[in-house]
Write a protein that binds this DNA or RNA. Structure first.
Lengths: 242, 242
DNA sequence: CGAACACTTGACAGCCCTCAACGTGAGTGG
DNA sequence: CCACTCACGTTGAGGGCTGTCAAGTGTTCG
């Protein structure tokens, strides 16, 4: 996957087909006035490079952002200096939703590779949402989904289950955006995966190796291929189908 | 704490002061028309008794609900029959927010003791939210808070940290609703706490006993007293202040 | 009073973390 | 082109936290 490639450049009336807001814009006929207003408040950000921050913990909250290209990692550092990865955000996914409740961002967001974003002032998009019910509904659903996502990871699963669910999840999300579901890049370091899945980096390494030995996946550095999706889904089973 | 006691009975123009929506109604001057409409769509539910379900996984999603009295547990059962407790909801807190993204409830909600609720049709409250920006904002913030809450539990904490954070969290939430922060009832079974914190029931038992032996808490069956809040906060530290 | 249930307590094992050393690539400068 | 460096990743040994299994205690309720 070439993460800098855009599936759609987006013009004034179709907008990005890869974007999380596309459902609000495309599928369900937002009127041209509403669509124009949504474009008015979009601010294109990037390209950011690996290591560049979108926002940092404690920054005043002003906007949410949709990833257009690349991967963004959200994370926080606890009192003891340990990093907790909250999520990896692929093209079409939205970051900053957990900041709405407060007046500052509760976490950091950093680009893992070359990334582009669409930035939406939250006060402005809120106002627009009162005029465009479909947009309001989309925002509600985006927020609600994130609750479910966070709850899933909170369960007490084994390292194998976590890793399998992580890989299947990545595959499905990439697939939904038009990328290959069976061959993709891990844009994040093993350490990031570990901090996301609450495992030690060594455990991540060992599980991946075992999966490879069992011909479930083929992994070379950060290149990954799913060889036996059904077995992987079986391992992840309890997590995916809760 | 007598969980069946209402802090406020709520009349047409003040509504329940313990309610999560009170901020939208009271603090920031929703106009009387908006307030009247909000009351129009409220449906009082209950009293429910321990074991009664508010909704079940798979039920068609129609409404969110605010707990007015009592405690509600949300949980799901995974493929292997293990119960995962998503949360305990005290008076003034809202359940069903994680259902907005889908068309059915993704979890069960059951009363742990005698409980009363206010039920809000979601389609209707959405429409009202387009007319009352303050209500929309409240909904956004409620949703956003739940993301943060779920993410917290997802971290890899020790049993002591989890339990301490759980008790401090309960104490703070009860305190915010006008109940004693130092003496309260655990309305849920040890098993429920265990399933919530991802621990074995035996571990919950042992940690509570150790806390008691160290004079941090006094616990007798489901009656709990916090004897040394600062020490408890120190143990929970990394979780509470992330 | 008896049964079911919640909870406690103890012994043991297993998963995964910690610590440590080593291997491997990418980038750099000579 | 090669040596060097450094970050990242892998592999191995050992230990600790917590889950599992089992038995016992206490309480509620019919």
């Amino acid at each position: 996957m070439d993460s800098t490639t855009l599936a759609d450049d987006g013009d004034a009336f179709t907008f990005c087909s890869t974007c999380a807001f596309s459902q609000a814009c495309l599928s369900q006929g937002m009127d041209k006035s509403g669509l124009r207003d949504l474009h008015m408040l979009v601010e294109h950000v990037g390209p950011l490079h690996a290591g560049d921050h979108v926002f940092r913990e404690g920054d005043p909250f002003e906007a949410i952002a949709a990833v257009r290209a690349g991967t963004v990692k959200t994370y926080s550092i606890d009192r003891d200096g340990r990093e907790h990865v909250l999520g990896f955000h692929l093209p079409g996914e939205v970051i900053g939703l957990n900041a709405i409740a407060g007046d500052v961002y509760p976490c950091n967001a950093v680009a893992l590779d070359t990334a582009m974003l669409c930035r939406f002032s939250f006060p402005k998009i809120s106002v627009l949402a009162t005029r465009v019910p479909r947009l309001q509904q989309t925002l509600f659903k985006l927020l609600s989904s994130d609750i479910g996502r966070a709850s899933l990871l909170a369960g007490d699963w084994t390292a194998d289950e976590r890793m399998a669910a992580f890989l299947i999840g990545l595959s499905r999300r990439l697939s939904a955006r038009g990328f290959s579901p069976d061959r993709f890049q891990l844009t994040m370091a093993r350490t990031d995966i570990a901090n996301y899945l609450r495992l030690a980096p060594e455990t991540v390494s060992r599980v991946l190796k075992r999966f490879q030995d069992e011909d479930i996946i083929a992994v070379d550095r950060r290149e990954l291929e799913l060889l036996d999706r059904s077995r992987l889904e079986a391992i992840a089973g309890a997590i995916l189908h809760t």
